[in-house]
Design a protein around this nucleic acid. Structure first.
Lengths: 211, 211
DNA sequence: ACCTGAACACCGTTCAAGT
DNA sequence: ACCTGAACACCGTTCAAGT
């Protein structure tokens, strides 16, 4: 905020500032005017480096997916996919706005396509046929996006902010008995471990299709 | 638009109009002013029956989840869950804004809790222990929300609107070779059948944990 | 080439005023 | 009790004007 104001404005700097802002204040609070202020510039200056706000969203998503770590080509397909997915979940967790924004935009940018290409390549390496590769990718993508979005809106207990689900349950134990019976398992859900558990079931299912 | 204008305004009528509007024009175009106009009323009148716009979103989500059909208690657990999930996917498909709005709100209303309660109850009936019931629910929820959101943003071929993924691929075949190799499988993806395929793998994985 | 001020057409929401 | 008009504090985006 003090020394950075003199740096020339670039698309890259705008995207990075937008990511930082969304991480701190949430993506709903992000506006062109506030983003400009963060960069020591009027909102309208941003349009010299960026098409519009959607373009910024796409850039943010791309920026986040770029940091997914790809394991070496050497490892076997299961550990390869496991590692890619674990890395993806970790970065989606730290940028909790990313999944939902991606879903809204419905736009796979270059880095999301690289992620997809990497997973699909390893499924092919495993020896699956094209149809099962396709099934596998769709399952892994849905699993990852589903857990990431649930984790994003249901913060763990450490966040002390009681989830909406917990609040609703507290008043309606008799109306949703089966949900109530799960009690602590729901409120103390560790999304990363839960995610990896489900991942193994999917990988088991795919492995069973290797003949 | 002609005869309905005289009906008294109610929360219910507002929610129904909002759902119809979102179905037709997409949820991003929904505004208090437009919704009022749809009901022959000024935007400010809505606040007599509704807290604010978020309250409308919650009402819309609840309205949609209410129409999920619950099979009879008699059927075995697998077909029961299969039928509930198939119904859920169908209604989430027809109201393509619903999943993303639910994820953004992060708010399980009464009817979403009923859906959850029904699925969890049937997992319990299957004979799973509490931990596996919890795992099962999280997997089924993620699977459903993940596919629904992907289906919502990647319309089938019949919609003739080429998906963003297809457009991106057309220009970068050599950059994402494994993705490109899947070609028609991706562009002609039938989300409902794909969803049911993955559902079976999850149910297989859960069934294997019955001892 | 890049930044700005003023303006346009919208938002959600509040509040005093009407009936 | 319910609806309204005017107002407030915001939006994203355009465009002519500055340097």
């Amino acid at each position: 905020m003090t020394t950075t104001e003199r740096l020339p404005l670039t698309r890259e700097r705008i995207i990075e500032a937008a990511v930082a802002f969304a991480d701190e204040h949430g993506i709903d609070d992000l506006s062109m005017r506030k983003l400009g202020a963060e960069l020591g510039v009027e909102a309208m200056s941003l349009y010299n480096h960026v098409d519009n706000k959607d373009d910024i969203y796409d850039g943010m998503i791309n920026y986040v997916f770029e940091s997914i770590e790809m394991p070496s080509e050497g490892v076997d397909w299961r550990t390869g996919i496991r590692d890619i997915c674990a890395s993806a979940m970790e970065i989606l967790w730290t940028h909790s706005w990313a999944v939902i924004t991606l879903m809204q935009r419905g736009n796979f940018g270059p880095s999301a396509l690289s992620f997809m290409n990497e997973v699909v390549g390893r499924l092919r390496n495993a020896g699956l046929n094209d149809e099962d590769i396709h099934h596998g990718w769709q399952m892994l993508a849905s699993h990852t996006m589903g857990y990431a979005s649930q984790a994003a809106t249901n913060p763990g207990v450490m966040e002390q902010k009681l989830s909406n689900l917990q609040a609703m349950m507290a008043e309606n134990e008799e109306r949703y008995p089966h949900v109530a019976a799960l009690g602590p398992l729901l409120s103390e859900c560790q999304w990363d471990r839960e995610y990896m558990f489900g991942l193994e079931i999917i990988l088991d299912g795919l492995e069973a299709r290797l003949n």
